[in-house]
Every structure is written in structure tokens, then in C-alpha cells.
Amino acid sequence: MMRKKISLALVCLTIGLLSGCSQKTAEAPKETSAKTQETTRESAATYPEKNINFIIPYSAGGGTDSLMRLMTAAMEPDLGKSLVVSNKPGGLGQVGLTELASAKPDGYTIGALSNLDHILVLLTGENVSYDYDSFEYVGAINTTVNVLMANDQNGFKSLDDLVAYAKENPGSVTVAISGKTHIAEVALFEQAAGIDVTTVMQEGGGESLNAVLGGHVDCAVLDKKFVAQVEGQAVTPLASFGGERLSVIGEIPTMKEQGYDVATETYRVITAPKGTPEEVLNRLEASIKSVTETDEFQEKMENMSEIYRFLGRSEVKERLDNDYQAMVTLLKENPNAFE
């Protein structure tokens, strides 16, 4: 009896230690990156020689996951090897990106991220062990915007109605949001319009939709894919946060058109750890471009109500730099935007 107990304790201890160890080894190899770069440079011409791990820092079934799984499946025949997807959700992508940042930069561990989540973790996250320059940004294949919608019960037929009401009743307009990106977007809008609204955080788009359709909140920030869902119901889309009108929601004016200087968009960026050889990055960029250009792929994206927009390495870096600056400015002017 006693012996069994002891051996049991040992088993538990070993499992515990093992799990601890494997975590350490995963985080270690940053310093050796220069060396591996040398050796991988020679083999870059034949890249890839083995299967590639693809880290998605969000849970299975979400927006980033669905799009990236579609893309990785299309890339497999082109690269001749498998892309093995693993979801590592947590902390707005921080858990998965921590692992990606410390992975060996040989092109066999790559991943994806969502632009604003990534920047907001860097600027407002806790215990972030990587920085903006820990990654090589390989490319992006989509763009999407969020839309501000209002329940009809308050008679907000346009953005101006809402702003006028909010100016008279500071803090009394309630806006359902989900995620840090929405906090940033609402804060930018408040700043541009000189108003103060109350945000009500929800677990996801579905809950926000429920809150605004049921009239439990006055407005909601929702992804553009929800626009088709609210058609014919007592909810009016007031404005899109995007810089320009998107064809699928062409009837919805942007914030900018209505005189409020806000322009944000969301796109998923294919990312590799810093130090990945140039040849590998170029090979990946070319592969992404060629497999996503086909009509077949774009039709599948359209079905998922995603909008195709390819950005290569230099373009995606430029976009990210701009987004980063916009968020830095927002935080400078309104340090409490995320409190």
C-alpha cells in the first residue's frame, strides 16, 4: 500500500518535471540563431526538406484559424511538404507568439498573427518576452473591417445622430465590444468625435450581436461579416472603421467620409522568427502569392466572407509600421484608453 503510494508520487513528479523541462527547451535557443543561420543558408535553395510547423496563436475555428488553415492546405502541393498546424491560443495571441519568437529561425517553424492584437499586446501586454522586431513579416492575404451598428430603438439613423446624442448625454450610449482591437477603435472614434461612450465587453461577436439585437446595448462593434446577418432586423450599420469602402459592404459609409478621422483594418500576417534566411522568406512569400492568386482559392475566401488582398514582405511591414504608429499616438494622447 505504502509502496504504491510512493511510486505514484514519483510518477506524478516525473510528469510534472517533464512538462516543466520541455517548456524550457522550447524557449532556450535564441542565442544560437546566428549559427543556425549559417548552416541553413546553404540548404535554403532546397527548402523545404521536411514538414513545416505552423503556429496559430488563436483557437481552432476562429477567424485567423479558418483562413490560415485554408491557406496552409493550398500551400502544401506547392511546397511539396506538409504544413502542420497547431493552435496555441491565449492572451490575445501572446502565448503562441512567445513560442514562435523563440523558435529556431530555419523556416521550419512559422506562424500567423492578427495585426492590431499583436501591436496592442506589445504596447499594453504584461510580461511580453518578445518585441516588434522579433519577427520577420512574410505577407498577408486578407483585409477586413469592423462596423459600428446601432439598435433602432434610439432612432440613431446615422453616425451624426449618435454623435449629437452622445454629446448631450456623455457616457450614456452603450457600445458592445469584444477584444482589445475594438477598445482601440472605439477610443479612436471617441477622440475624433469628441464624445464619451460606455463600452460593454462581450466574449465574442455572437454575444455582441445578441446584445445589440436584443436592445440590451445601444450599439455594437462587429466584424463586417455580421452585416449580412442583421439585414432585415432592427439594427442599422452606421459606419465602417476602414479607411475606404469595401465592395461587399459598399453601402456603408466610412468614418472618414462622415468627418471622423478614424481608419483601422484587420489582417492576418504570416510571420517567421527573426533571423530566418532571406531565401526561405522569399520562397514562402512566392508560394503564398502563387497559391492564393487562383480563382478557386479566392472563391473559397469569398465564401468565408473574407476579402482577398495580397501584401508582400515590404508592403506588410509598411502597413504594420503605420498601425503601430497610430496606436502609439493613441496611447500618448489617451494613456487610459485601455484601463
Binding site: 450581436l209 461579416k225 446577418q229 465564401n303 468565408m304
Partner: peptide, 27 residues
């Protein structure tokens, strides 16, 4: 009917609907 998942599992099935271009809602 609304595109609002009632549970964690049906949230993933929501994803399966949209992949096939089926947009939940009255339509």
C-alpha cells in the same frame, strides 16, 4: 436563426456554416 452560437461546440459549427457561404440569420 440569428447566427448566435448557444454553446462552445455550436460556435465551431458556425464556422463550418460560413465556410460554405451559408450566413445564419432569417435569410
Amino acid at each position: 436563426s440569428l447566427g448566435i452560437p448557444g454553446s462552445a461546440t455550436s460556435a465551431i459549427i458556425f464556422g463550418a456554416l460560413t465556410v460554405h457561404g451559408l450566413i445564419p440569420g432569417p435569410k
